[in-house]
Amino acid sequence: MGYLGGFIVTLRQRGEKNRVTTQYSGGRVFRRNKKRAIKMDEKLDKPERMHGRHVLNRYEDGMEKCIGCELCAAVCPAKCIHVRGADNNPTNPTSPGERFGWIYEINYLRCIHCDLCVEACPTEAITETKMFEFSFTNRKDAIYTKDELLVDNSGKPQQLAWEDWREGEEQNTSGWMRATAASGDANFVGVVSWSGELGHGVRPAEEKSE
């Protein structure tokens, strides 16, 4: 019997109620079983701190938050981020300050969505959405470039052809923010806060868990 023990979790997930993956099967289940149409092609609400694909944020004035410091790349355990900085054009800067992220690439074939990049980012430039439904078919698509990661001027992520997004889902871009003390203020150690986001404002920080 011992080997069956390993299936306990799997077996527990059986049963209609717990099913997740079939609910947005792109209409196949709907076609087979019209009775459950209401639940067809809907996604479940995801946990608030879900780690999905990244976005690069902008400030309200449209400037990019990324300064090309490469801390995300340094901290990435999967070595899937490649960043290169460059000098801002003083008359038409891309980001505030001297330096901006000139190249920014994330290889989603390697990314493990650990969010250490988000923790490391000193400017809250990179955050993660809750969207994880993207299935690409070639390596080139898997490497997201800066143009693809960057939010548009209204603060919404850009949908790529192979990403399964639904109406209103771009609202789900709110980034999960660090649990360390960003400001260095000891009062905020252990508090999960949220990045201020263009188009979505600022969400209050979570209660501090002791």
């Binding site: 090309g68 490469e70 790349a73 340094a74 900085g85 460059a86 000098d87």
Partner: peptide, 9 residues
């Protein structure tokens, strides 16, 4: 060397 790389890479 300006902005060419960071020490860790």
């Amino acid at each position: 060397y300006r902005f060419k790389a960071r020490p860790w890479d």
